[in-house]
Write a protein that binds this DNA or RNA. Structure first.
Length: 284
DNA sequence: ACCCAGGCGGGCG
DNA sequence: CGCCCGCATGGG
């Protein structure tokens, strides 16, 4: 079985920060700390990316693997201009300094939908375990990895089998979302329709609310206006921009859009990751 | 024992 | 619109 490899220059690319930032790839892929590499399956192929000094090495089962990595990690984005656009204050600038190379990923819309449904009211370690166990149970093997389950597989799964993946109360949402996505919504047809249209459609999926819809819009469709507000982002923003006062999600959205505009998605990534890393190191 | 986690749906005023 | 609640499960 042939393997395709390639090397490409990559500045401002940090695989570990990206893996640690709780994006769909963090849950679907496998990170190897010793090699500093990440492997995952896509479209019945496998690929592995190794972080070098100022370069990436790629190996995969298809000649398309380099293109896949370029797209998945948005290597075409100029991080220089992203950083200059989002660094509106010292706290964002500090996150950028600490986590330079943290990349936004562009993932499959269907996979993003299920992963972010699993993510609700949950912690990162458990999201990964549940996602992996759903893949083991309902996916199929691609080389030595597992594929992400098809819509049919999850729509036809029993709630009991999903519960045995420890999905908890999310089991019924997973099944409901799969049924809805295969019968009543063309997830892939939404690509490129724009943030408002995409979000409105996603909100019709059972188990998808405001926050999860923004996550899917951002990391499944690449809509950079999206600004998902979870507990970390809320707390971090209240501390940084609202004098520590409790502030409604609606107000935080309004603030974000005025402040970062169509770079909100990248700003959110650095606010979220910075806030979460800082919060964790302080104990709690 | 306790609080919390990349929230959502449903009910209430 | 805002607020409150229940929801499964396991980490710190």
């Amino acid at each position: 079985m042939r393997e395709y490899t390639s090397t490409m220059a990559a500045r401002d690319f940090n695989l570990l920060h990206t893996f640690a930032s709780a994006q769909p790839l963090s849950f679907i892929g496998h990170y190897d700390a010793e090699r500093n590499s990440l492997s995952y399956s896509y479209d019945n192929e496998t690929v592995r990316v190794f972080q070098g000094e100022d370069s990436l090495r790629i190996s995969g089962s298809s000649p398309r693997c380099a293109k896949e990595i370029t797209k998945r990690f948005r290597l075409g984005d100029s991080m220089e201009s992203v950083y200059s656009e989002i660094s509106k204050d010292d706290s964002v600038a500090e996150s950028v300094r600490r986590y330079r190379g943290l990349r936004l990923t562009l993932n499959d819309p269907w996979e993003s939908t299920i992963v972010f449904i699993i993510s609700q009211f949950n912690n990162v370690k458990r999201i990964r375990r549940i996602t992996q166990s759903v893949m083991e149970r309902f996916g199929s093997s691609v080389g030595s990895l597992m594929s992400f389950p098809a819509m049919d597989a999850l729509a036809e799964a029993s709630e009991r089998d999903l519960l045995s993946c420890n999905a908890g109360f999310r089991a019924k949402y997973i099944k409901g979302a799969a049924e809805y996505c295969r019968s009543s919504l063309d997830l892939y047809g939404l690509r490129g329709k724009g943030y408002d249209t995409i979000k409105e459609s996603l909100l019709e999926i059972p188990g998808v609310g405001d926050k999860v819809a923004d996550c899917i819009a951002l990391m499944g469709y690449g809509e950079l206006e999206a600004f998902p507000i979870d507990t970390w982002v809320k707390r971090t923003m209240e501390r940084r921009y609202f004098d520590g006062k409790s502030t409604s999600i609606k107000r935080l959205h309004e603030f974000a859009y005025k402040y970062w505009g169509n770079m909100s998605g990248y700003a959110q990534l650095y606010v979220f990751h910075g806030g979460r890393m800082e919060g964790r190191s302080h104990g709690r």
